[in-house]
């Protein structure tokens, strides 16, 4: 990644790892996320916090091109998604996957290596070794051959984390990795995320639990259909900001969104 080391044209500040510029996202015609400007400069544990339906997952999906942008741009270390894909590891929400699917934990982790293999090359010994190492890092080496649906919720989430590890990415985007996960798995997941940060990776986590957010994340963004505040956890998680995020002030945004979707007008 030579780009990340290049100073930007506008000054001597390094190019940010992730930059959302005026990002607006819609499902169909209905905008669900309005004009987000968010810059993450340096490797850290970054939490995206907000109420249900605030558009937290949507923000990640927009960054990954899984939902189209209505407006704005997302750049990774100064380059667009198409050139940065192989540097990003993604852990989707648990609900997006069919857990009865006939794959073993090992098969799922191996999928993390498919991106760098290209379309037609089959995984070889190097990829298998990488998948085994990643499973061991999340403490699941002994259930490698188990069908994914036969693992506990916490183990399933750790398998997905291992898949992201096998990707050997520079930026990790995780969508609610702590949802439906027992306390022990939460600790283990957090330990792995902290070790990623220690090795200079950026870890962005969509998270719903305010209590743990304060102790886990270096920096957070508060989101409720728009960006409320972003920055160091201690300065962002203030009573005032939390009230602005959780008090449903966005009723107007919702109404306008619906009006846009229905080609109508708000009352």
């Amino acid at each position: 990644m030579t780009d990340s080391a290049t100073p930007s044209a506008t000054g001597d500040r390094p190019v940010p790892l992730v930059e959302f510029h005026d990002v607006t996202v819609a499902y169909g015609r209905r905008p669900v996320l309005w004009n987000v400007d968010l810059v993450i400069d340096a490797p850290c544990l970054f939490g995206i916090i907000g109420p249900n339906g605030a558009g937290k997952s949507t923000l990640l999906k927009a960054a990954l091109g899984l939902v189209p942008l209505v407006g704005g741009t997302v750049r990774f270390a100064g380059v667009p998604l198409a050139r940065a894909r192989h540097t990003i590891g993604y852990v989707p929400q648990r609900e997006s996957v069919d857990w009865d699917f006939p794959v073993s934990a090992f098969d799922v982790v191996l999928m993390g290596t498919y991106g760098r293999l290209g379309w037609f090359r089959r995984p070889g010994p190097a990829e298998r070794a990488s998948a085994r190492d990643s499973l061991a890092r999340v403490g699941l080496a002994d259930v490698a051959d188990r069908q994914i649906g036969r693992l506990s919720g916490g183990q399933q989430q750790r398998v997905f984390l291992a898949r992201a590890l096998a990707q050997e990415a520079a930026i990790y985007l995780l969508d609610e990795p702590m949802a439906g996960v027992d306390a022990r798995s939460q600790e283990q997941i957090f330990d792995v995320l902290a070790s990623l940060r220690a090795s200079g990776r950026l870890v962005v986590v969509v998270h719903h639990d305010l209590r743990t957010a304060a102790e886990w994340f270096d920096r957070v963004a508060l989101i409720d259909m728009r960006l409320v505040a972003a920055g160091p956890t201690a300065t962002v998680l203030t009573p005032d900001n939390l009230r602005r995020t959780y008090s449903g002030q966005v009723e107007l945004l919702r109404e306008v969104g619906l009006a846009v979707a229905e080609r109508g007008r708000t009352s």
Binding site: H86, P92, F101, V103, M111, L117, F120, R122
Partner: peptide, 22 residues
């Protein structure tokens, strides 16, 4: 044979596959 891995990934986790460039 050569595209099996793409079929597996796309069928199991379409979002994850798309994010990985499949």
């Amino acid at each position: 044979v050569p595209t099996w891995k793409l079929q597996v990934f796309s069928a199991f986790d379409p979002d994850g596959a798309r994010a990985a460039g499949v």
